[in-house]
């Protein structure tokens, strides 16, 4: 790893040169999809929410290099927080989002205090165990959460008092797309901040970062907390748009799928999460429609193909191909 001075500078030329190109492209595609597929807005909204969720994992895994399988813990907590706030306190969507972010960040901070001391298998197991415990708690707190029946009766006010959530999900789609773009911009700031850069450094060499005086453990806890807040936002979005929170939000499959989508697109780049989620969910959607019984073959083969042939993810594909040609 070459670590010249330009790598450490707060604004790296690569990002500064391209500016907000990616965000603009994503926004344009998002707007275009609205007009191209007016009858699939529910599915499109689910993709966008998943992107927010996978972005939160990207911060932990792609930037700080910490592999976890429990990101659903924060997603689920955010979803329940937003749902409960909507039912008992206020039906304002934005306050619900804030509640989801705070709840997700809170759980991430508390569990991060333990998780970020561990490595490897232990860390994976601990992160899974946290999500499982939360799932059991939500299951048992039946009077509050509805237990296995799910949290029902979420009614949201119009967004900012102006746009009402409608049946085919037009307002919901615009709402989710806006939040996604804001999350992307926020993460762009975070990953280029000193905190984000030290996360990258920790990924490359924790020992060296420690040697130059970085409080590695606390940096990781803060990164995990921020990521938890974003996962909480994703959960809150899901709760508000679908008006339902079920125990499945804490499912292990949910964390595992997020991991697959992230690596499929390419971890450690924000737009990798976008591409990975879009491709995975499209493949899953089409394959499940064509053959609802055997689509898992395709997903399994897809995952193995990515890991074996394009470990850098689909966004690393052009580079991998040019590497092949040059050889």
């Amino acid at each position: 790893m070459s670590s010249s001075a330009s790598d450490v500078a707060p604004r790296r030329p690569l990002l500064a040169g391209r500016g907000l190109l990616w965000e603009a492209v994503i926004l344009a595609v998002g707007v275009g999809l609205f007009f191209l597929f007016p009858y699939d807005l529910g599915f499109l909204s689910r993709i966008l929410i998943m992107i927010v969720f996978v972005l939160s994992l990207d911060l932990v895994l792609g930037y700080a290099g910490v592999a976890t399988l429990g990101q659903a813990a924060m997603y689920g907590t955010g979803a329940y927080a937003a749902g409960l706030i909507a039912i008992h306190v206020t039906a304002s969507p934005l306050l619900g989002l804030a509640a989801g972010a705070v709840a997700g960040a809170g759980i991430a901070f508390v569990s991060g205090l333990v998780l970020m001391r561990a490595h490897g298998l232990t860390l994976l197991m601990l992160s899974i165990a946290v999500a499982q415990v939360l799932q059991e708690v939500a299951n048992k707190a039946r009077p509050l959460t509805g237990g296995a029946d799910g949290l029902r009766g979420i009614r949201m006010d119009p967004i900012l008092g102006l746009w009402e959530f409608d049946f085919i999900g037009r307002a919901g789609y615009w709402y989710v797309l806006t939040v996604l773009i804001l999350v992307l911009l926020f993460l762009k700031v975070v990953v280029n901040s000193p905190l984000g850069l030290s996360a990258r450094g920790i990924q490359e060499s924790p020992e060296r970062m420690r040697a130059i005086g970085t409080p590695v453990y606390w940096r990781l806890v803060w990164i995990y907390t921020i990521a938890g807040g974003i996962a909480g936002v994703a959960g809150a979005l899901a709760a508000q748009v679908t008006a339902l929170v079920s125990l499945e939000v804490f499912n292990f499959d949910h964390s595992a799928e997020a991991l697959i989508m992230l690596v499929l697109g390419g971890a450690g780049r924000l737009y990798g999460a976008v591409v990975g989620v879009a491709i995975f969910m499209l493949v899953e959607h089409v394959a499940a429609a064509v053959d609802p019984f055997n689509w898992l073959f395709l997903i399994g083969a897809l995952v193995l193909a990515v890991v074996f042939f394009v470990p850098a993810g689909l966004l690393g594909l052009p580079k991998a191909l040019t590497g092949l040609v040059r050889r």
Binding site: A67, G120, I260, V263, L296, F297, G300, L304, V307, F308
Partner: peptide, 28 residues
């Protein structure tokens, strides 16, 4: 054999992929 040389994350993913294939095979 190729999986041993991979990083932790790739190992997790590759073996999840193998799990999916096993599930799909028995399902079929």
């Amino acid at each position: 054999r190729p999986i041993y040389r991979m990083g932790e994350l790739q190992q997790v993913l590759a073996t999840i992929g193998i799990t999916f294939l096993m599930i799909a095979s028995v399902n079929l």
